[in-house]
Computed example of a mutant assay.
Amino acid sequence: MLLLLGDCDSGKSTIFNQMRLLDTELTAEEKLMQYMQHKKASGIFETYFRVGEYVFYLFNGRGGWRSIRRVFCDQSAYILVVDSSSYDMVCQGDNQTNQLQEALNNIENLWRRMRTMDRPVFLFLNKQDLLAEKVLAGKSKIEDYFPEFTHYTLHEHTTPAQGEDPSVTRAKYFIRDKFLKITDSGDVDMHKCFPFFTCAIDLENIQRTFRDCGDKLNFCSS
Protein backbone atom coordinates (compact mmCIF):
# COMPACT_ATOMS: atom_id res chain seq x y z
CA MET A 1 0.00 0.00 0.00
CA LEU A 2 1.26 3.45 -0.91
CA LEU A 3 0.24 6.85 0.40
CA LEU A 4 0.30 9.69 -2.14
CA LEU A 5 1.00 13.10 -0.60
CA GLY A 6 1.56 16.58 -1.93
CA ASP A 7 0.15 20.08 -2.00
CA CYS A 8 -3.15 20.63 -3.78
CA ASP A 9 -1.50 22.08 -6.90
CA SER A 10 1.44 19.67 -7.10
CA GLY A 11 -0.30 17.45 -9.66
CA LYS A 12 -0.88 14.50 -7.32
CA SER A 13 -4.58 14.27 -8.18
CA THR A 14 -3.71 14.07 -11.89
CA ILE A 15 -1.25 11.26 -11.16
CA PHE A 16 -3.89 9.54 -9.04
CA ASN A 17 -6.49 9.77 -11.80
CA GLN A 18 -4.06 8.51 -14.46
CA MET A 19 -3.97 5.16 -12.71
CA ARG A 20 -7.26 4.02 -14.18
CA LEU A 21 -5.70 4.22 -17.64
CA LEU A 22 -2.70 2.03 -16.84
CA ASP A 23 -4.24 -1.33 -16.07
CA THR A 24 -4.71 -3.05 -19.43
CA GLU A 25 -5.66 -6.47 -18.07
CA LEU A 26 -9.12 -5.56 -16.81
CA THR A 27 -12.33 -5.20 -18.79
CA ALA A 28 -14.10 -1.84 -18.93
CA GLU A 29 -16.69 -3.10 -16.44
CA GLU A 30 -14.01 -4.36 -14.06
CA LYS A 31 -12.21 -1.05 -14.29
CA LEU A 32 -15.38 0.80 -13.41
CA MET A 33 -15.79 -1.34 -10.31
CA GLN A 34 -12.10 -1.40 -9.45
CA TYR A 35 -11.49 2.32 -9.67
CA MET A 36 -14.44 3.52 -7.68
CA GLN A 37 -12.96 6.01 -5.26
CA HIS A 38 -14.32 5.71 -1.75
CA LYS A 39 -13.94 8.68 0.51
CA LYS A 40 -13.04 7.55 3.97
CA ALA A 41 -13.89 9.39 7.15
CA SER A 42 -10.25 10.48 7.23
CA GLY A 43 -10.56 12.20 3.85
CA ILE A 44 -8.41 9.58 2.09
CA PHE A 45 -9.34 8.33 -1.38
CA GLU A 46 -8.17 4.94 -2.58
CA THR A 47 -7.78 3.03 -5.82
CA TYR A 48 -6.24 -0.19 -7.10
CA PHE A 49 -4.24 -0.51 -10.29
CA ARG A 50 -1.73 -2.77 -11.97
CA VAL A 51 1.40 -1.75 -13.88
CA GLY A 52 3.01 -4.78 -15.51
CA GLU A 53 3.61 -7.37 -12.78
CA TYR A 54 3.02 -4.90 -9.95
CA VAL A 55 -0.29 -4.26 -8.23
CA PHE A 56 -0.56 -1.00 -6.30
CA TYR A 57 -3.07 -0.11 -3.62
CA LEU A 58 -2.85 3.65 -3.58
CA PHE A 59 -4.21 6.17 -1.09
CA ASN A 60 -4.59 9.79 -2.16
CA GLY A 61 -4.20 12.04 0.87
CA ARG A 62 -6.56 14.86 -0.07
CA GLY A 63 -5.60 16.78 3.04
CA GLY A 64 -2.14 17.41 1.61
CA TRP A 65 0.78 16.87 3.95
CA ARG A 66 -1.59 16.82 6.93
CA SER A 67 -2.99 13.47 5.79
CA ILE A 68 0.10 11.64 6.94
CA ARG A 69 -0.79 12.39 10.55
CA ARG A 70 -3.76 10.05 10.27
CA VAL A 71 -2.28 7.13 8.31
CA PHE A 72 1.43 7.62 8.80
CA CYS A 73 2.34 4.16 10.08
CA ASP A 74 0.03 2.04 7.93
CA GLN A 75 1.71 2.16 4.53
CA SER A 76 4.35 0.11 2.73
CA ALA A 77 5.78 3.18 1.02
CA TYR A 78 5.13 6.86 0.46
CA ILE A 79 4.90 8.94 -2.70
CA LEU A 80 5.63 12.63 -2.19
CA VAL A 81 4.66 14.87 -5.10
CA VAL A 82 6.27 18.29 -5.59
CA ASP A 83 5.61 20.98 -8.20
CA SER A 84 9.12 21.48 -9.59
CA SER A 85 8.04 24.55 -11.54
CA SER A 86 6.94 26.44 -8.43
CA TYR A 87 10.31 28.06 -7.68
CA ASP A 88 8.88 31.48 -8.60
CA MET A 89 5.44 31.03 -7.02
CA VAL A 90 4.02 31.80 -3.58
CA CYS A 91 1.73 29.68 -1.44
CA GLN A 92 -1.96 30.40 -1.78
CA GLY A 93 -2.37 30.44 1.97
CA ASP A 94 -0.28 33.54 2.68
CA ASN A 95 0.71 34.87 -0.78
CA GLN A 96 4.20 35.32 0.60
CA THR A 97 6.01 32.04 1.24
CA ASN A 98 7.89 30.62 -1.75
CA GLN A 99 6.01 27.52 -2.84
CA LEU A 100 9.06 25.38 -3.61
CA GLN A 101 10.67 26.38 -0.33
CA GLU A 102 7.47 25.39 1.46
CA ALA A 103 7.69 21.95 -0.17
CA LEU A 104 11.30 21.68 1.02
CA ASN A 105 10.19 22.61 4.53
CA ASN A 106 7.41 20.02 4.42
CA ILE A 107 9.82 17.30 3.33
CA GLU A 108 12.25 18.24 6.07
CA ASN A 109 9.54 18.09 8.74
CA LEU A 110 8.26 14.81 7.34
CA TRP A 111 11.72 13.29 7.23
CA ARG A 112 12.27 14.02 10.91
CA ARG A 113 9.09 12.12 11.74
CA MET A 114 10.27 9.14 9.70
CA ARG A 115 13.47 8.56 11.66
CA THR A 116 12.23 5.26 13.04
CA MET A 117 10.29 4.18 9.93
CA ASP A 118 11.59 1.44 7.66
CA ARG A 119 9.75 2.60 4.55
CA PRO A 120 10.90 3.62 1.07
CA VAL A 121 9.92 7.08 -0.11
CA PHE A 122 9.36 7.94 -3.76
CA LEU A 123 9.84 11.62 -4.51
CA PHE A 124 7.97 12.70 -7.65
CA LEU A 125 9.47 15.96 -8.91
CA ASN A 126 6.44 16.77 -10.98
CA LYS A 127 5.53 19.26 -13.72
CA GLN A 128 8.85 18.86 -15.49
CA ASP A 129 7.20 20.16 -18.67
CA LEU A 130 6.31 23.47 -17.00
CA LEU A 131 9.75 23.74 -15.43
CA ALA A 132 11.36 23.34 -18.86
CA GLU A 133 9.07 25.99 -20.35
CA LYS A 134 9.98 28.50 -17.65
CA VAL A 135 13.71 27.85 -17.90
CA LEU A 136 13.77 28.10 -21.69
CA ALA A 137 11.63 31.25 -21.68
CA GLY A 138 14.20 32.93 -19.45
CA LYS A 139 11.73 35.37 -17.95
CA SER A 140 11.81 33.91 -14.44
CA LYS A 141 15.27 32.90 -13.29
CA ILE A 142 15.80 30.36 -10.54
CA GLU A 143 18.74 32.31 -9.08
CA ASP A 144 16.40 35.23 -8.34
CA TYR A 145 14.63 32.98 -5.82
CA PHE A 146 17.41 30.56 -4.90
CA PRO A 147 20.70 32.49 -5.19
CA GLU A 148 22.77 29.34 -4.68
CA PHE A 149 21.74 28.20 -8.15
CA THR A 150 24.26 30.69 -9.58
CA HIS A 151 27.15 28.49 -8.44
CA TYR A 152 25.47 25.11 -8.92
CA THR A 153 27.27 22.62 -11.16
CA LEU A 154 26.05 19.24 -12.31
CA HIS A 155 27.61 16.11 -10.96
CA GLU A 156 30.22 14.55 -13.20
CA HIS A 157 28.14 11.47 -14.01
CA THR A 158 24.81 13.25 -14.65
CA THR A 159 23.16 11.93 -17.82
CA PRO A 160 20.84 14.45 -19.52
CA ALA A 161 17.65 13.22 -21.13
CA GLN A 162 17.90 12.76 -24.87
CA GLY A 163 17.51 16.09 -26.66
CA GLU A 164 17.18 18.04 -23.43
CA ASP A 165 18.54 21.57 -23.28
CA PRO A 166 21.52 21.77 -20.85
CA SER A 167 19.89 24.65 -18.97
CA VAL A 168 16.84 22.48 -18.26
CA THR A 169 19.03 19.61 -17.09
CA ARG A 170 20.89 21.91 -14.72
CA ALA A 171 17.65 23.35 -13.32
CA LYS A 172 15.91 20.06 -12.63
CA TYR A 173 18.96 18.47 -11.01
CA PHE A 174 19.47 21.54 -8.83
CA ILE A 175 15.92 21.15 -7.52
CA ARG A 176 16.39 17.41 -7.09
CA ASP A 177 19.58 17.94 -5.11
CA LYS A 178 17.85 20.47 -2.83
CA PHE A 179 15.51 17.70 -1.71
CA LEU A 180 18.17 14.98 -1.57
CA LYS A 181 20.28 17.20 0.66
CA ILE A 182 17.47 16.89 3.20
CA THR A 183 16.79 13.16 2.82
CA ASP A 184 20.48 12.23 2.75
CA SER A 185 21.33 14.14 5.92
CA GLY A 186 21.60 12.67 9.39
CA ASP A 187 22.59 9.23 10.56
CA VAL A 188 19.40 7.42 9.61
CA ASP A 189 19.61 4.82 6.86
CA MET A 190 16.54 2.75 7.66
CA HIS A 191 14.66 4.18 4.70
CA LYS A 192 15.66 5.49 1.30
CA CYS A 193 14.41 8.30 -0.89
CA PHE A 194 14.14 7.58 -4.60
CA PRO A 195 13.63 10.69 -6.78
CA PHE A 196 11.83 10.65 -10.13
CA PHE A 197 11.30 13.39 -12.71
CA THR A 198 7.62 13.20 -13.58
CA CYS A 199 5.01 14.84 -15.78
CA ALA A 200 1.54 13.92 -14.57
CA ILE A 201 -0.13 14.48 -17.94
CA ASP A 202 2.34 12.16 -19.69
CA LEU A 203 0.83 8.70 -19.26
CA GLU A 204 3.93 6.92 -20.57
CA ASN A 205 6.12 8.78 -18.10
CA ILE A 206 3.84 7.87 -15.19
CA GLN A 207 3.64 4.23 -16.27
CA ARG A 208 7.44 4.00 -16.49
CA THR A 209 7.80 5.70 -13.12
CA PHE A 210 5.48 3.27 -11.37
CA ARG A 211 7.28 0.31 -12.91
CA ASP A 212 10.50 1.69 -11.45
CA CYS A 213 8.73 2.14 -8.11
CA GLY A 214 7.72 -1.52 -8.22
CA ASP A 215 11.32 -2.53 -8.84
CA LYS A 216 12.47 -0.40 -5.91
CA LEU A 217 9.82 -1.91 -3.64
CA ASN A 218 11.05 -5.38 -4.53
CA PHE A 219 14.62 -4.32 -3.91
CA CYS A 220 13.80 -2.78 -0.51
CA SER A 221 11.88 -5.84 0.63
CA SER A 222 14.54 -8.34 -0.46
Rank of each mutant, 00 (worst) to 15 (best):
D7M: 13
C8R: 12
T14G: 06
N17C: 04
N17S: 09
R20N: 05
A28M: 11
K31P: 01
Y35R: 09
H38C: 02
A41Q: 11
S42M: 10
G43H: 01
F49V: 05
R50F: 03
G52R: 08
G52M: 00
G52H: 04
E53G: 06
V55W: 00
Y57T: 13
F59W: 15
F59A: 14
R62W: 03
G63Y: 04
G63K: 11
G64A: 10
S67V: 00
S67I: 01
I68G: 04
S76W: 07
V81H: 10
Y87T: 01
C91Q: 08
C91Y: 03
C91I: 12
G93A: 09
N95D: 14
N95I: 00
T97H: 04
Q101C: 05
E102H: 12
A103G: 06
M117N: 04
D118C: 09
R119P: 00
P120V: 06
P120Y: 05
L123K: 02
L125F: 03
N126Q: 06
D129G: 06
L131I: 03
V135I: 15
L136M: 14
L136D: 01
A137C: 10
G138T: 11
K141F: 00
I142L: 11
Y145F: 15
P147R: 05
E148W: 01
Y152M: 09
H155A: 14
Q162E: 15
Q162F: 09
E164Y: 06
E164N: 09
P166W: 08
T169I: 08
R170A: 08
R170D: 04
F174H: 07
K178R: 15
K178T: 03
L180V: 08
I182V: 14
T183A: 06
S185L: 02
V188R: 03
D189I: 09
M190F: 04
H191P: 00
C193F: 14
P195A: 09
P195M: 10
F196W: 04
F197E: 03
T198E: 05
A200E: 08
I201Q: 08
L203H: 09
N205M: 06
I206C: 11
C213N: 00
K216C: 07
C220P: 00
